[in-house]
Nucleic acid binder design. Structure first.
Lengths: 180, 180
DNA sequence: ATTTTATATTCAATTTAGTGAATATTCTCA
DNA sequence: TGAGAATATTCACTAAATTGAATATAAAAT
């Protein structure tokens, strides 16, 4: 259900085409909803059509000369009202669901090197993702206390990404010695 | 696809009924797969039937006197082989998908107190979950260096849970002042 | 001139996940 | 004795996610 609201949220203050949205739903784009939600372009276009039909979004066709024409979606008052209501609802903690941990749980069934390689690989990926987040932090959020309201909230989600990645790194560092 | 393998993993060395499995797929049961995967009992029974049909699992009916009869599932050699092959495959980092962060991203649309209450609530839930994990750690994993191979891997997944919760707590502590 | 890449979107099919309702047995507690 | 809780499982429906294919325009690269 949340893709609905993730799209609505992404469009608040930033009307976008499906194509642009799809890019923003990718985790390595700055200031992006990709920090905390992701979806394929097919999912996004489908959801945009549903939301337009419900009139939570409205679309404006834009003729372009240098590229194919596109449709820019923006949130309607009804959509914003629905979004606000959803925000106010109670939500549960998101449970962990992670393939790597399933694999590790029965790690004794495979050679040690298999898992060690996986962990080294994951560690590196988390390190890279963290570097992206840190770069965004330094570029756009040098002085958090002077940010606009809207940006302050985006900064908080970025911080969540940073804590997420540092948590993975410290875990890797703690368990890799146990594996050797 | 991973529920398949999460179930296979859960049954390695611990044949169980659907009912017992369903309990183990709950995050607050010690030594449990619930640390890193969760599923409803309906999902689990359905998947057990599929896996029995594929002969990755076999079931043994057990008559009981004090309770309704049950079927105990255990992994077959084919199932274990499939599990090992899946473990060896490459997996991606699991992207974050979190409702609370979607809500926070557009937090400026609602009163501050709404989000502050949510954060306090989440902080408390993560704190409680962490306490459960710490308790399990102290009870079963006092001396990690002397654990059996199988238990050492389970310990690593428990540590992941601990890092996950501490990461959430430190994030809450960092952002809550920004919200006030 | 042709291929590739980027922009921009749609449709169909399948798989996986999630929810609600229902059934049956036995124990415990009032 | 009857209600409720715990054990044990199945069926049906709906929603969400995944995958593959397809179409079209225009720029850039070979």
């Amino acid at each position: 259900m949340s893709l609905t609201y993730a799209i609505l949220s992404a469009l608040v203050g930033a009307p976008s085409s499906g194509y642009d949205l799809a890019k923003r739903f990718n985790p390595s784009v700055e200031g992006s909803v990709g920090f905390f939600w992701n979806a394929s372009f097919q999912q996004i276009y489908r959801e945009l059509n549903r939301l337009e039909e419900k009139e939570w979004l409205q679309a404006k066709s834009v003729q372009q000369e240098n590229r194919p024409d596109k449709r820019i979606y923006s949130i309607t008052p009804v959509g914003e009202q629905q979004l606000c209501q959803w925000i106010s609802e109670l939500e549960e903690m998101t449970p962990i669901k992670d393939e790597l941990l399933v694999k590790l749980f029965v790690g004794h069934l495979v050679p040690r090197q298999t898992l060690l390689s996986k962990l080294e690989n994951h560690r590196q990926q988390h390190q890279q993702r963290l570097a992206i987040y840190q770069q965004i932090k330094h570029q756009y959020f040098q002085e958090p206390q002077v940010l606009s309201e809207a940006l302050k909230f985006q900064y908080m989600t970025l911080l969540r990404g940073i804590h997420h990645e540092t948590g993975w790194l410290s875990w890797c560092d703690e368990i890799m010695p146990l594996l050797k």
